[in-house]
Amino acid sequence: MKRVERIIIKLLLIHLFLLIIAQIFLKQDDVRPFLSKAIQYEGVGNMTITEWVETFHQ
């Protein structure tokens, strides 16, 4: 049982590490368009902030 617990703890630590790395990448403005396709699908990729906000008011 101790072996299984050690494996689960190692997997949790690896998962936590990967989550932290992913969050760091998502905070980088240069990398975000390559990781998040939602900006391209929504059609707000090339808009200014005022144009983007206007889409919500319509």
Rank of each mutant, 00 (worst) to 15 (best):
D29A: 07
M1E: 06
V44Y: 00
L18M: 09
L11F: 07
E51F: 01
M47Q: 06
P33L: 05
K10F: 15
E54Y: 00
D30P: 04
H57N: 05
Q40H: 14
Q40W: 14
I39V: 07
G43T: 01
H57D: 04
Q28L: 09
K27M: 11
E54Q: 04
G43N: 02
E42V: 07
K10L: 15
G45C: 13
M1P: 10
Q40G: 06
M1N: 07
I9C: 13
V53C: 01
K27D: 13
P33V: 02
T48R: 00
A22P: 01
L18T: 06
Q40M: 10
H57K: 07
D29C: 03
E51I: 03
M47K: 08
I9K: 13
N46P: 09
I21P: 00
L35F: 01
I14T: 07
T50G: 02
T50M: 02
K27N: 14
K2F: 15
L18D: 04
V31L: 02
Q23A: 13
M47R: 04
L16S: 10
F34D: 05
N46V: 10
D30K: 06
A22E: 11
I9M: 12
S36G: 09
D30T: 05
L19D: 11
T55M: 09
G45T: 13
S36E: 13
Q28S: 12
I20N: 05
I24R: 00
A22L: 11
K10E: 15
G45D: 15
D29P: 08
L18H: 02
Y41S: 15
F56R: 04
K2C: 15
W52D: 00
L11N: 14
V53M: 03
L11W: 03
S36V: 11
E42W: 05
A38G: 11
L16H: 07
I8M: 09
P33N: 04
L16G: 12
D29Q: 07
E5A: 02
R3Y: 12
I39T: 04
F17W: 05
L12D: 15
I8L: 09
T55Q: 12
F17N: 06
R3K: 14
V44L: 00
R3W: 10
I49M: 08
L16Q: 08
K27R: 09
G45M: 15
A38E: 13
S36Y: 09
Q28I: 11
K2R: 14
T55N: 10
K27S: 14
F56I: 06
Q23I: 07
I14S: 07
I8P: 06
L11T: 12
Q40S: 10
S36R: 12
I39M: 05
I24S: 03
P33A: 04
Q23G: 08
I20R: 03
W52G: 00
F25A: 12
N46T: 12
I7K: 11
Y41W: 10
L13F: 11
I20T: 07
L35Y: 01
M47P: 01
K37T: 14
F17K: 05
R6H: 10
E42C: 08
L35H: 01
V44F: 00
A22C: 11
Q40L: 11
R3F: 14
V4Y: 11
I24N: 01
E42T: 08
I39F: 08
W52T: 00
Q40F: 12
E54H: 03
L19F: 14
E5W: 04
A38D: 13
K10D: 15
I49S: 08
T55G: 10
I8V: 10
V44G: 00
I7D: 14
Q40A: 10
L13Y: 11
R6S: 15
R3E: 15
L13V: 10
